[in-house]
Nucleic acid binder design. Structure first.
Lengths: 173, 173
DNA sequence: GGTCTAGATGCGACACTGTTGCATATGGAC
DNA sequence: GTCCATATGCAACAGTGTCGCATCTAGACC
């Protein structure tokens, strides 16, 4: 499958950015919540921090297995679930594909969350302005008392390329 | 599971609304595209037209089986796929749940598509104004040459109730 | 009505994502 | 070091969706 796998931005360690290591910060918060800091959870955080891009549970499993062999697939899901509950990790649904995860924006020193749009035809993922849904969020809050989670799902549609080339639609004309 | 199953609005036949039967109209369009009109496809259209609400592939399978026993589960998926390609049916991803389908808005004589938001905590689905994403669509088109399909996914967040009752955070307990 | 064929279907097997129950291991408090 | 609640490993399972292939059928043509 070539469905626009999010490429793992090879993070050249922020270096002198002055930011605390996002993993350290996350660990601090896990303890603050009275939850346990385990090898699996730390490994998941480390993988996400190193990629700084969307990763599926399976991709995380593969990466974690490299650093901490023996960690079970189920544990990845449970760790992600726990980290999401604590607000340290954000889950996003990318169209049909499996859920994708990333570190919470504030752990990376970013104020806006990362928003993406997904092409329904070619699956390409495209990052868009983090404030794209601000007005929508305000309207949902005002009119429906609904608190929007802008990162929850990626919006779908068709990218420029696929709009121009209406795709084979099925061999037929 | 009680995850806000979309209740099938019992459609009291539009009667003298003057609208053509959406199924007839859809059938016309299938033929116009040179594709075949089959029992399975017609049954799927009929089920969607009668419910006029979101239905999952499985729910459609159950309903179709009532009207046309013997139709295979796989056929439902293939029929939905074909009908979606022809623009007669719209697929929406509701959070984590299975894809949900509805007839295209124009077949029902509606100009705006139906938009929904889904609560990540309780799963409740809430219909919102059809023009909610108009400005976002314009901006995506202008800045990213991306043609938004507003019905592709439902936005997620937290409903009023779940915002007030921050939920056990720990279903396990 | 009969014939023909591309395309639709039935069927079964499968892949993938995610969950659950339970026994065991372990983090962290003491 | 001891202890216990919780995290984990494991295995089995559920739900959604896809694929290959043999068969059937809608629709065109006679």
């Amino acid at each position: 499958m070539d469905r626009g796998t999010p490429q793992p931005t090879p993070t050249p360690d922020p270096g002198g950015s002055g930011l605390p290591d996002p993993v350290d910060e996350a660990v601090r918060r896990i303890r603050a919540h009275g939850e346990r800091v385990t090898i699996a959870r730390t490994a998941v955080l480390r993988v996400l921090a190193d990629s700084k891009a969307y990763l599926t549970a399976d991709q995380i499993f593969v990466e974690v297995s490299r650093a901490a062999p023996g960690v079970h697939r189920t544990t990845i899901y449970r760790a992600l679930d726990a980290l999401e509950r604590l607000g340290l990790v954000v889950q996003t649904r990318m169209g049909q594909d499996a859920a994708a995860y990333q570190l919470a924006a504030y752990l990376l020193g970013e104020s806006d969350p990362r928003l993406h749009v997904v092409c329904r035809a070619c699956g390409r993922v495209q990052e868009v302005a983090g404030d794209l849904l601000d007005a929508v969020a305000r309207r949902l809050a005002a009119e429906y008392a609904f608190r929007l989670d802008p990162t929850g799902v990626a919006l779908t549609g068709h990218c420029d390329t696929c709009t121009r080339n209406p795709l084979p639609t099925r061999g037929r004309a």
